[in-house]
Computed example of a mutant assay.
Amino acid sequence: MINDQHQQCGAAGNPEQHPQQGGNCCPGAGGPAGQPKMPGAATCAPPDTSKDPKVPPITGTDPCPALCLCPPAPGSTSNCFDQLIADQARAINEAERAKSFKADLEALLQKAKLAQDDYTTEKYHLLLDRWKQQDRDIAELIHRIVCAAPCWRCQVECQVCSLFNKVRSLELLLKGRPDQRYDKAYCLYDQRYWQERDLALKQAAFDRVKRVLTVWEKPGADIEAVLNENLKLMAGVKELASDSAKGLYDVFIRLLPLHLAIAPPASTAVTVIDKKYTELCTCGAQDPDDCCGPDVGPQSVRMQMLDRHAYLVEPAKYFPIICCLVNHRYLPVKDALAKAEADLKSTDAEIKRVADEIKARMDSIEKDAKAELAKPFDCSKYTPVPPCDGAQRTPAT
């Protein structure tokens, strides 16, 4: 039984009373588990510091070998109004984006004011006390689980993490990596494909920031909901009694990550849970993007299953977090997304225009050719190009 094995292992929280059995039994060296960052960083780097690949202008020019020195073809039939119209359309889009963003800011401000009224100092301290108690209870529960399952790490890595790794492999197969896109385009379809991928990446970045802002609309309610869920998870694991293997998933994949996701910064309260119990299923994990405090960066498959959550900070730090997220993350990714959408629409329009022109020219080739052939042609002004010389030349005047 878990209780009997726990008694043999010693009391949790004091490694001197229960030496580690095979490095797996009881919490020990390694330091405390990671906790959310203290908000209020002085600087925030742009969310995407990499430069867009240089996609060269696509002209479609590939001169055919000249068999005769023909006069220059007529210039483009487009007129100066095309660019003026395009410029005005872009200006209209910019104005619409500004109007939309203003409405978003007003909505965010209203929600932040409501959240500030609800997330009081009294409520913060009540939630913090609950978290501290759960931190001790979870450390005790982990101790029982690992004492009953000596090879707990290998069980989790081989039987659970391998499932996450398979999902990650499929995601790479489907989407690739952001840094594996080509940097040149040789036709409009190449350009459109690059822009479609660029749009997908910017949409994902926007969705991450938007989700973080959403959970911080009601931080108290979100933290309380996680505390309640964790209480149920702990009760369920304890009911498993001797079948500790079934509790490994709930403890290491759900309970522990959720508990640490809402943890206060270490400067407020340091967890008694050792970090070795959190270093699981790390394949695909990326550096956090947490300059404002909350992490808005990509998540591993394991963390994606847990969604985003607010964490315990003093109410006085709430508005600085929201302002930082809006100024340094939400606005930049929203603008980047709008630009990516506009660029893709522009390329789609150009593809349609070129395709329509190709069809129109194909349909009128016979008519146009006969009209050209009906015009007078002074043979003395044209000279065939010598054999084996396909270079384009300027006709004699």
Results as ranks from 00 to 15, higher is better:
residue 245 A to M: 15
residue 245 A to Y: 13
residue 245 A to F: 15
residue 246 K to S: 09
residue 247 G to F: 09
residue 247 G to K: 06
residue 248 L to G: 05
residue 248 L to V: 14
residue 248 L to Y: 13
residue 248 L to R: 11
residue 249 Y to M: 06
residue 250 D to L: 15
residue 250 D to K: 10
residue 251 V to G: 02
residue 251 V to A: 05
residue 252 F to L: 08
residue 252 F to C: 02
residue 253 I to G: 00
residue 254 R to V: 04
residue 254 R to A: 03
residue 255 L to A: 13
residue 255 L to H: 07
residue 256 L to F: 01
residue 256 L to E: 01
residue 256 L to W: 01
residue 257 P to D: 01
residue 257 P to Q: 00
residue 259 H to N: 03
residue 259 H to Q: 11
residue 260 L to K: 02
residue 261 A to K: 11
residue 262 I to A: 09
residue 262 I to N: 03
residue 262 I to K: 08
residue 262 I to C: 05
residue 262 I to W: 09
residue 263 A to G: 04
residue 263 A to L: 04
residue 263 A to F: 03
residue 264 P to Y: 01
residue 264 P to T: 02
residue 265 P to I: 00
residue 267 S to V: 10
residue 268 T to H: 01
residue 268 T to V: 12
residue 269 A to Q: 14
residue 269 A to K: 06
residue 269 A to N: 10
residue 270 V to W: 01
residue 270 V to A: 11
residue 271 T to I: 04
residue 271 T to F: 12
residue 273 I to T: 12
residue 273 I to N: 01
residue 273 I to A: 13
residue 273 I to M: 10
residue 273 I to K: 09
residue 275 K to H: 13
residue 275 K to E: 15
residue 275 K to I: 15
residue 276 K to R: 15
residue 276 K to C: 08
residue 276 K to Y: 02
residue 276 K to Q: 09
residue 276 K to E: 03
residue 277 Y to K: 07
residue 278 T to C: 13
residue 279 E to I: 08
residue 279 E to A: 15
residue 281 C to Y: 07
residue 283 C to N: 12
residue 285 A to H: 03
residue 285 A to I: 01
residue 285 A to Q: 12
residue 286 Q to P: 02
residue 286 Q to Y: 01
residue 286 Q to D: 02
residue 289 D to Q: 02
residue 289 D to I: 03
residue 289 D to G: 00
residue 290 D to C: 01
residue 290 D to I: 00
residue 291 C to L: 12
residue 291 C to Q: 14
residue 291 C to G: 12
residue 292 C to K: 08
residue 293 G to N: 05
residue 293 G to A: 07
residue 294 P to Y: 11
residue 294 P to F: 12
residue 295 D to R: 02
residue 295 D to S: 06
residue 295 D to M: 11
residue 296 V to H: 05
residue 297 G to W: 04
residue 298 P to K: 03
residue 298 P to Q: 03
residue 298 P to G: 09
residue 300 S to W: 05
residue 300 S to T: 12
residue 301 V to C: 07
residue 301 V to N: 05
residue 302 R to Y: 00
residue 302 R to A: 06
residue 302 R to E: 08
residue 303 M to C: 08
residue 304 Q to G: 04
residue 304 Q to A: 07
residue 304 Q to D: 14
residue 305 M to G: 13
residue 306 L to F: 03
residue 307 D to S: 11
residue 307 D to C: 04
residue 307 D to K: 06
residue 307 D to H: 05
residue 308 R to E: 09
residue 308 R to F: 14
residue 308 R to D: 14
residue 310 A to V: 10
residue 310 A to T: 06
residue 310 A to Y: 09
residue 311 Y to L: 01
residue 311 Y to W: 07
residue 311 Y to M: 05
residue 312 L to Q: 00
residue 313 V to D: 00
residue 313 V to C: 14
residue 316 A to Q: 03
residue 317 K to S: 08
residue 317 K to Y: 04
residue 318 Y to V: 02
residue 318 Y to I: 08
residue 318 Y to Q: 10
residue 320 P to S: 04
residue 321 I to D: 01
residue 322 I to W: 12
residue 322 I to F: 06
residue 323 C to K: 14
residue 323 C to R: 11
residue 324 C to H: 14
residue 324 C to K: 12
residue 325 L to E: 03
residue 325 L to H: 14
residue 325 L to Q: 13
residue 327 N to H: 09
residue 328 H to E: 11
